[in-house]
Amino acid sequence: MPKSLIVVGTLIAVVAVVTGGAMWWQYASTTEMPVEVDTASQQQEQPPLPKSTTLLLTTDDSDNTDGALETDVSILDRELSELKKDSDSIDQQMSAQ
């Protein structure tokens, strides 16, 4: 067996091992998906934001009849209902903390 043949064979083996190892390392690192893109905010569908307030009482501020007062209070009820949605929205935002 010529000595030069052994040297050439050894060189081929070393080069092939290094190349193969490098290739496998690159393949493994690119096919795995370690990046965690998702966050808590994406895990739950959030409802749309409540609309901005449009609170207006009866047109006449001095109208204090029973009818006007009842209308005013029913408007308050509607806005308090929207306020509940605002409150829920805060809970939604903070649950992602």
């Binding site: 609170l55 009482l57 806005e79 308090l80 605002d86 805060i90």
Partner: peptide, 17 residues
């Protein structure tokens, strides 16, 4: 902030009532 703005608007309306 959005909640507070609505709450303050409601409070103002209540003051008129």
């Amino acid at each position: 902030i959005s909640f507070s703005d609505r709450a303050l608007s409601i409070a103002e309306a209540m003051e008129k009532i």
